[in-house]
Amino acid sequence: MPSGPWKNLSADFCGPLPTGEYLFVVIDEYSRFPVVEIVKSTSANETIPIVDKLISIFGLPKVIKTDNGSPFNSHAFKEFAENTGFHHRRITPRWPKTNSQAESFNKPMMKAVLAARIERRNWQQEPFKFFRQYRGTPHPSTGFAPFSLLFNRETRTKLPQVPTYKPNAVDECARQNDEVAKRKMKQNATFNNSPNDIHCGDVVLMKNEQKNNKLAPNLDPKPYNVVAKKGGMVTVSSTSGMEKNVTRNTSCFKRIPNTLAPGSVEPEVAEGEELILERKDEQVPISDSKSMPMQNAAPTLAPETIPKSKPTVQFSDKRTTPASNVTEPYITRSGRIVRKPAVF
């Protein structure tokens, strides 16, 4: 038995299957943990990438034991072993018992594949259920599950379990380093990002996610209403109510005043309601709201507001004297009502 997990491996091909494919099996001799890949051929060009992928996931082993098949006798696999840094050991020809770990696993695996074909199920997916059960069941030789020996923890299954994980010094150190790193990243994010001022009920513009060209605007001109907010997640709905709610990060929105929202309309005055223009303690009623001028148009005075007789000037001795050279009031271009002073 090897001194530790993933140091000595056994590899073998199983097949061909009725579909013309093969099963490439790699087993750790310490934990009996199996890894199976489906390949279309047994050439070195198909085998080397799979072995390289397993090494990148689980680490570099010391020895890989195989039979004398054509992919393992090739010059390409020999160079791959030398460049990667593991020893390739080939067993005695025509004596498969030397590679018993891989050969013994092929028997129950092929039963699972055959049962899937008889039951007309997907034979490429059904064996994964067998792999989960095999890796989580104590092996008769070691008395421990292959998963627990390889990863130093118990695998999670549907059955109720009692947690047996005990933190060690490495775990405590890793947690402290992780907390310090996350606190530093949070401080940098708070320093670099502007404060979020989006709240429920605000009118916002969303980031344009579908740009047809380089000149497309960064923000979608369609306004949205903020209906929910949870942390940095904001949910908005279209002001027209014709689209579904959209959830994005707060950085994808920009708040705008309600008066700047497209489609907003100035309040109108009902027909028949009077508006009052106040100028120096004077009130000039305007009966029709539709005759209200715009910014550059002058309002129209009602006929009853224009005096028909000459105005008089009140003196302190309560004498009434007609004012001479008094002209009629007129309206300027800005909408102001002007009366020239009386000349005595």
Rank of each mutant, 00 (worst) to 15 (best):
T164H: 05
T164K: 10
T164C: 05
K166W: 01
K166L: 09
K166E: 14
P167K: 10
P167N: 08
N168T: 12
V170Y: 09
E172F: 11
E172Q: 11
E172A: 11
C173E: 12
A174L: 11
A174S: 09
N177V: 05
D178N: 09
V180P: 00
K182L: 14
K182W: 08
K184D: 11
K186P: 03
N188D: 15
N188G: 05
A189N: 14
T190A: 15
F191N: 12
S194F: 14
S194Y: 10
P195A: 04
D197F: 06
D197Y: 07
I198W: 01
I198G: 01
H199P: 00
G201M: 02
V204A: 03
L205A: 01
N208P: 01
N213S: 15
K214M: 07
L215S: 12
L215I: 03
A216W: 00
L219Y: 06
P221H: 03
P223R: 05
Y224T: 03
Y224F: 14
N225I: 15
V226F: 00
A228I: 01
K229G: 05
K229E: 01
K230C: 07
K230H: 09
G232L: 10
M233W: 12
T235G: 01
V236M: 02
S237Q: 15
S238A: 12
S240C: 08
G241K: 03
M242S: 14
K244N: 11
T247V: 07
R248T: 00
R248G: 05
R248P: 02
N249A: 06
T250S: 14
C252A: 13
K254E: 09
P257Y: 01
P262M: 04
G263V: 02
V265I: 10
P267K: 07
P267T: 03
E268L: 10
E268D: 08
V269R: 09
A270T: 11
E271P: 06
E274I: 15
E274L: 06
I276D: 08
K280R: 13
D281R: 12
D281F: 12
D281Y: 13
D281G: 14
V284L: 14
V284Q: 06
P285Q: 04
P285S: 13
S287K: 11
M292W: 11
M292E: 05
P293R: 05
P293M: 03
Q295I: 14
